[in-house]
Design a binder for these strands. Structure first.
Lengths: 332, 332
DNA sequence: ATTTGTAATCGTAACGTTACGATTGCATCT
DNA sequence: AGATGCAATCGTAACGTTACGATTACAAAT
């Protein structure tokens, strides 16, 4: 394998000069730079990652910590465009991206600890923040560059990229009202989930603007799976005053609700109006009339890497935060 | 940051002894090993990846080269359980897994070249093999440990993990025949695709066994997207002798076909029988009666890492090949 | 003739780890 | 007493890179 020493020997130069020439050091004669570069190309030289990392302390690796739903891969659907965006952006910036999957059994803070101490990464991308997330404090404390996908309730500033769930839920609710819906059901994950809280807030804002009181029985929590969504929506449909509109949490929630509708012989778009988020283009090819808003998850992935890169380059710079907007499909 | 030197200084030992003690070297006194391990735990020592990699030449990193469909993330659906399986298995084996995404514009062989020369990985996982794939030759030639997801037509042996598409297609076709279908439509990707060729072969075997001649007009190619699947199946349904059974290529093909059926007011399970593959648990929650067979993609991912690891540990050992079977849901 | 300045290049050390051969201390054997 | 064997530990070098302070050669200034 070609290394600096070999090139140096071949050209009767020192390793130092070769090293400098390859990065266009101003101390090296232009003609020497040319000779060195020619030789490097000829012998197929590529810098040894680990030699460099050991010396400089920079690894040129970013790590994304991703919790995986080991039982149900569909609920992780939106991770795919996210991974695509992250890996491609990382590559373009000269980094490689390592994925650290965690299962529900893993201790989330331990995974971060491990990354921190192994000196094996230049920066971390963390997701699925919880209230007062200890990882944020830990990473800020240890001065490890990181960026979060999602926000949480901390008084300290930290870099994040998030989806503007409040605005999206607001617009979704408004859209259902435009169809004439007043009894609008809302799917959420868990109350502690920041995204869910934001969605609830946007929903509440739209309802308040229209002067419609909020009926707590229409708010569904725990809509993680198609099963839970189907069961919940089935109960709602069976009630004495069933909803006429539904804002789904994600594609899974949508599929579950469609399941419940289908069993009762009801059709989306006439009996019940539905709006859903669609990060994967799934919803728009279902044989059903559904309102769709999409979030560019690959764009989120690219943005995460971009923010993280800035953080690495300029650790003391301003804390960047990004809110991604959703895009609504034109009304049917 | 804690390193061997610090621990050595603290315990008045040499760096060598500490290093050996941490890996239970037989030359070190048991009591010393205990002292060293205690100190290591206390100061939070974790070995520096790059120091070790530089010295040993092993990086403890595996790289998966994954082509991404940048336009349509749904067609990449099954990659998610694959990624999960790979990353978790890699972690368990002490490796970290790096994802190298490629776009349709990328030169596939260049991506491999780059990985090869940067000394940054211990082994490669390649996917989406093409006929006479040059990457396989290159990697065998350079003695870089690798494993392929999928087979191709090469006369040299190489390690791979693949899904037994022939058998799965055979069983799917048999199942449709059990429902009384004789005109059975089959979705394929491209003729050059090995998986498609295998599926066609299994389909043909089942048809031949039943003495049903194959009607080429029922074989659909290019079923990559929901759109193409919907358009193709719509044409078939409009023909004078429409199919009564359909074997879908994947969840996307299924959704497209359901779209076409829905537009004509036809129902799966009565007018037309459908069997599909479901790697993501999507199909089984659609409001439709569909025959389902699933392939454990997370298992494929784990198997890939396992085979690759064996290859790294024992480069001259026998070439491992694995065929994963599908699992059919009990008949409706 | 000596000093100063400058451009080009060099030598050494260090990052943290491991491999390998050397060294120590001590008990046992001739 | 001296030699031998063994267990435990040590010292040094090396992996490939880069940072930093020399060193050289030569021209220009004193």
């Amino acid at each position: 394998m070609a290394n600096l020493k070999q090139i140096a020997a071949e050209l009767s130069l020192s390793v130092t000069t070769v090293s400098r020439a390859l990065k266009d050091g101003p101390e090296v004669q232009p003609s020497t730079i040319a000779r060195v570069k020619e030789a490097a190309k000829r012998v197929g030289y590529l810098p040894n990652h680990h030699g460099r990392a050991l010396k400089t302390g920079r690894t040129l690796t970013l790590t994304a910590v991703l919790p995986m739903e080991t039982r149900d891969h569909l609920s992780d659907l939106l991770k795919l465009p996210l991974i695509e965006g992250m890996t491609l952006a990382a590559r373009q910036a000269g980094y490689s991206l390592s994925i650290y999957s965690t299962t529900p059994d893993d201790d989330p803070i331990e995974s971060v600890q491990r990354q921190l101490q192994a000196h094996s990464t230049d920066g971390l991308i963390i997701t699925r923040l919880v209230s007062g997330d200890p990882r944020v404090k830990l990473l800020l404390d240890k001065r490890m560059p990181f960026v979060a996908f999602g926000r949480t309730d901390l008084d300290t500033a930290y870099p994040y990229v998030d989806v503007d769930n409040e605005q999206i839920a607001y617009e979704a609710t408004r859209r259902l009202m435009d169809k004439g819906c007043r009894r609008i059901a809302l799917q959420l994950l868990v109350p502690e989930d920041q995204a869910s809280a934001m969605r609830l807030s946007g929903y509440g804002r739209a309802m308040a603007e229209a002067g419609v009181p909020i009926d707590q029985s229409l708010i569904g929590h725990g809509m993680f799976t198609m099963e839970s969504s189907a069961a919940w929506f089935d109960r709602l449909l069976a009630s004495s005053d069933p909803p006429t509109g539904l804002a789904c949490a994600n594609e899974l929630g949508l599929l579950g609700a469609l399941h419940a509708l289908g069993r009762r012989g009801l059709a989306p778009g006439s009996d019940v109006h539905i709006v859903t988020r669609d990060s994967t283009r799934l919803a728009r090819f279902l044989p059903a009339r559904i309102g769709i808003h999409s979030v560019d998850m690959a764009g989120v992935g690219r943005k995460l890497v971009e923010v993280l890169e800035n953080r690495i380059m300029n650790p003391l710079g301003p804390v960047e935060t990004v809110l991604m907007q959703g895009r609504f499909e034109p009304a049917e």
